[in-house]
Amino acid sequence: MKRREFLLAAGGAALATVSGGAAARDNRPVLPHAIGMLYDSTLCIGCKACVAACKRANEMPPETEMKDWAVDLSPKTLNVIKAYVDGSGLAKDHESNGYAFVKRHCMHCVDAGCVSVCPVQAMRKDQTSGVVSHHPEACIGCRYCVMACPYDVPKFDIHNAFGQIHKCQFCNHRLAEGKVPACVEVCPTGASLFGSREQMLAEAQRRVALQEGEPYDYPRLTLDAPYRHKKEAPIYQQHIFGEKEGGGTQVLHISGVPYQKLGLPQLPERSYAAMSETVQHTLYDGMMLPGAILAGLLFVARRNSGDHSDDE
C-alpha cells in the first residue's frame, strides 16, 4: 500500500465513522422528577443565614485565610452570598448606585459539565432528583471538574495533602431525611425556595411577569408551606437564569439587576458537555475510527518495519 492509498483508506474510514455512527449529542433533558431551587435576588436581604446554616448542615470548617468570611466559594464554603455594589450602593436591586445580592453554590446543571468530564464517575447526577453529587472515594483529584464547571463551583482543597473536592450536594443527606436544604430552611424571606424544578420554573415565570409594585404573596421554604409574606414586586429582569443556560440548571435565579453583574456567565443554550461529548464521540464512537486507523497502521508497520528492523 502506498502512502496515498493508506491515507485515503484512513480518511475514508474516518468519514464513514463520522457520518455513520455518532450523531451530535444533544443536551440532556430535564429529568421528570428533577428537584429545584429558586433564588430570588430581590428577596435576599444578605443576612447570610444560609451561609451559616450550610456550614452547620455540612460540617464545613470556618474560613481562616485572610478574612473570617469567605470571599468566594472555597473548599470550606459551599454556599456564599456576594454583593454587587455600584456607586453609592444604596438602592436595592438597582444597577446604578445600587446593590444586589447573589447566592452562589452548585447550580445542579441539567447537563452537568463536571459529570461529563470526570474520568472516574466521581461526579454523578442522580437519575431521579437530578442532584449533582461528588463522591470522593472515586475521585483521583485531577480537577478537570473545576476546569469544566461554568460556574466555578467544585473546589479542590489544595492546601491539604489528602484533600478532596468540595461542592454543594443539594443537602442530599437532609433530603433523605425528608427535610429541605439547610439554606432554604433558614432563609427568612424565601429568597431561596425549594421544590420541583417544574414548580420553581413556574414560580419564577409568575414573578418575572409581575408589574412593579404589584403585591405578591411570596412563599417561604416551599410553595405550599404555610409561611408566606406579602411584598410589593420589584422590577425583575425579564429572563430566568438557568432556564436554558448551558442546557439549563436545576437552581434558577431571578434578579433585579442583569445576571452578568451578579457574576453569572453568559452561556450558550447548548451545554459544553454536549459540545465536548459530540467531538469525543464523533472520534471515538465504538472505537471505530481508531480501530480503522490501527488496522491501517498495523498493515503499514508490518510491511515497512521489515526493511529496517533492529534485530540484526
Binding site: W69, V85, K92, F101, G263
Partner: peptide
Amino acid sequence: VEPPAHFPRI
C-alpha cells in the same frame, strides 16, 4: 447592608 460593606464582591 446599605451599602453592603461586609460582603465579598462579585
